[in-house]
């Protein structure tokens, strides 16, 4: 599935990563709870979510963090190494409900986006800094973040 490896020389400041599309739905949140060990009822129990002041169940921040990590690792390829990562959960995201066993109702699509903000060498390492984020269906960045990645160099 991995296509060709990207090299440090292939990117410049302003380069945009291929967008990763995601649809959050209640089935995905259940799977995430089980796989991650985050069983906070805020993500599956409407009444409890109401008491927490978010108006309904919300997407796990850590699931959105995992989407952003996927965005970056898909792009950097097997030879890349993620050195730093940071994200902040600024806005709530609300999962779609399920209408069948497997299919959610129509609704919002989330886009994970990223671009190169800096490119430099640090000793032997060929680094790029990225600005990343999860953008909701209204175009709002609910989960902004940054990452630093070491890419392979054609010269190395």
């Amino acid at each position: 599935m991995e296509s060709k490896q990207i090299f440090w020389e292939d990117v410049e400041v302003g380069y945009e990563l291929p967008t990763l599309e995601k649809i959050a739905h209640s089935l995905m949140l259940v799977k995430w709870a089980g796989a991650s060990g985050d069983f906070n009822p805020h993500h599956y129990e409407d009444a409890f979510a109401q008491s927490q002041g978010t108006g309904g169940t919300i997407v796990h921040g850590l699931l959105k963090h995992a989407w952003l990590i996927q965005l970056v690792t898909n792009w950097m390829g097997d030879e890349g190494f993620m050195k730093k990562f940071s994200c902040q959960y600024r806005g709530m995201d609300y999962p779609r409900k399920m209408q069948t066993m497997n299919e959610p109702v129509d609704g919002e699509i989330w886009q994970c986006v990223g671009k190169v903000t800096n490119k430099y060498t640090d000793g032997e390492a060929h680094c790029v800094d990225l600005e990343i984020g999860v953008v909701n269906g209204k175009g709002e960045t609910t989960t902004p973040g940054t990452a630093t990645v070491i890419l392979p160099s054609k010269g190395a």
Binding site: S51, Q52, G53, T54, H60, G61, L62, H65, F81, M82, K83, K84, F85, S86, C87, Q88, Y89
Partner: peptide, 16 residues
Amino acid sequence: YYRILDGGMTYEFFLP
């Protein structure tokens, strides 16, 4: 302070 939310995560990675 009973309404608790996750604010964010920051990592430094050194080894796979």
